[in-house]
Simulated scan of single mutants.
Amino acid sequence: METKIKEFPLDFQTLPDSHSWNRPPTEEDSLPVCDESHVPVIDLAGPRAIELIRSACEKWGVFRVINHGIPLDLLDQADSQTMKLFSLPADRKIKAARAPSSHGSTGYGEHTVSALFPKQMWYESYSILGDGSPLMEHAIKVWPHHEDDLFLGDLVHILTNGRFKNILHRVLVDKDKSRASRAYFYRPPKEVKISPASKMVDDSHPTIYKAVSWDDVLSAKAKYLDKALESINI
């Protein structure tokens, strides 16, 4: 399976114009940057864990957990394997390039919203849908065989009728070192419609979002980016 990826992966020796982001400041650049030291830290073994999680969801849309039961050596191994993956030669990574049929969700490639920007992102990603499908088997071909943050997403925001925040996640490029993130998405089946829960709706808090599926949200994100939720307002 072959997929052509423009100016990708990020293994060039000189900076091409396609990745040069010389642009004037925008309104978004003036938004406050979250200091990670201020992000709520929640002890999952503590007696107030549920209360603190609810508060963090309402005020922040992100929190950090400790005493989560995941062995630290397992997390270290995941970090090591992640760096091995992206350090592979370009011709090896391209073997698992995302196919159009995967809708940008399975395999190796650039972010699905890249087409919305005039320049290419300093970004490469690798994803696997854990559904045992042939697409998953294709993506696995490239993988070397050898404290955690939780972010709320659009579906939780919709389900709570806007009560729980969906934080704007932005990452800055570091000129001296690379940065890697591992994200695990927990979502309903694609055909299931999500709408504000009845407990979140009353006379003072009318329904603000229509029922949408996971595919609907992905399509809105690909088309409207950070304005996606506005497109599904009632």
Rank of each mutant, 00 (worst) to 15 (best):
V41T: 14
V41Y: 03
V41A: 08
I42A: 00
G46C: 01
L52H: 13
I53Q: 13
S55K: 13
A56D: 01
A56C: 04
E58S: 13
F63G: 07
V65L: 02
I66Y: 08
I66G: 09
G69E: 00
P71S: 10
L72T: 15
D73V: 15
D73F: 14
L74V: 15
D76S: 14
D76L: 14
Q77R: 13
A78G: 06
D79E: 13
Q81D: 03
M83C: 10
M83A: 11
K84V: 09
F86H: 02
S87A: 03
R92T: 15
K93H: 03
K93R: 06
I94V: 13
A96W: 06
R98G: 10
R98A: 08
S101H: 10
S102C: 07
T106P: 07
T106W: 10
G107K: 05
Y108T: 01
Y108P: 03
Y108G: 04
G109P: 05
V113H: 11
S114C: 00
A115R: 11
L116S: 05
M121A: 13
M121K: 14
E124T: 02
S125C: 15
I128P: 01
I128C: 07
D131R: 04
G132E: 01
S133Y: 04
P134A: 05
L135Q: 07
H138E: 05
K141V: 10
V142I: 08
W143A: 09
P144C: 00
H146P: 05
H146G: 05
E147L: 08
D148W: 11
F151Q: 06
D154H: 07
D154C: 08
D154P: 05
V156F: 10
H157W: 03
I158V: 11
I158A: 04
L159F: 06
T160P: 02
N161D: 05
N161P: 09
G162R: 02
R163C: 09
R163D: 03
K165I: 14
K165P: 01
N166Y: 05
I167F: 13
I167N: 11
V171T: 09
L172E: 14
L172N: 10
L172D: 14
V173D: 06
D176W: 03
K177I: 14
S178R: 11
R179F: 00
A180K: 06
A180V: 15
S181P: 04
S181G: 03
R182A: 05
